[in-house]
Design a binder for these strands. Structure first.
Lengths: 154, 154
DNA sequence: TTATTAAACAATAAATATTATCATTCGTCA
DNA sequence: TGACGAATGATAATATTTATTGTTTAATAA
């Protein structure tokens, strides 16, 4: 059996309400619209793109509110960051393929050589016409230092 | 046989000069210092951090120059981006583990379910005390659309 | 309900990150 | 060496994100 898009959305919104309650978050109209918008977009939108869409339904909403709520949703696990590494450009002088161990708290990155991992194997084809350049495995978590102090975990 | 750090650096700088020539880039003092600095830092520094370090040797250098050269180095493959996804926050309503196919040109992201990949297997231990939260595989390349038009490839 | 209180809101300013502009200087190559 | 295009430094402009503040709203309990 399959859920239709509508069912799945209803489920997600239900889930959303419950999770807000569990996290002690007030259930505001804005929050619900923001969450539903992201959920419906299905792409991996930026705050700006979300803001544009949400504004169609809530013309008076502020960009700051979108940012603050996205952050709240990330903190409570209602949403995820596509790339916990964003923030600022980071460059790498090692141009050989390798992987990363990333602390999501302090953003420290440790390298992992290509040979320290079993080769990544796909069970399916990549999208037709996609030209693959490289493949990177990122291990996200907390480094020893950040794991120790109970700051604000993400 | 092993290369010492000094040998390896000399090699890298030699390589750097040659690659500049091949790419038609003028070999300036600033470029050499910037590259060597990144190479020596070994971490995965931000432009700001690189700027601070470079300034110790070239007090008059401008932050813009650092940015522009980093970009040039990335374009010519002398350096790599740690996370080609940076730029702006991107959120994801799918909170189940999954992977990404990313176009480095237009930054489009396609999801790849956890089950569409053989499980990732480490051959070594993660750094002692590291608390792993999740593991994401990113396939970087060009989407069909971007592969077609010979814009500016990265 | 309705009053109370803490949280969330909109507006705005500030901070951070990045790119663009332009006059001057510097490498490159004849 | 000298001409020319490219690179630099200074600075302005833009983009992204966070902080601040006064006002409004949701949650809780009487």
């Amino acid at each position: 059996m399959e859920f239709s898009a509508v069912d799945s959305e209803k489920f997600a919104v239900q889930e959303f309400r419950e999770r807000c309650r569990n996290a002690g978050l007030a259930l505001t109209h804005q929050r619900e619209i923001i969450f539903r918008t992201v959920y419906e977009m299905r792409s991996h939108p930026t705050p700006e793109a979300i803001y544009e869409r949400v504004r169609e339904q809530l013309p008076s909403i502020s960009l700051g509110t979108v940012y603050k709520n996205l952050k709240t949703f990330l903190d409570t696990g209602l949403l995820r960051e596509v790339s916990p590494m964003h923030g600022s450009l980071r460059v790498d002088a090692i141009t050989e393929d390798h992987h990363h161990v990333v602390c999501t708290q302090c953003r420290m990155v440790v390298d992992l050589g290509e040979e320290e991992l079993e080769p990544v194997r796909l069970r399916v084809q990549l999208p037709d016409g996609f030209v693959l350049k490289r493949c990177v495995v990122e291990f996200y978590g907390l480094c020893p230092r950040c794991a120790a102090k109970p700051d604000k975990p993400r």
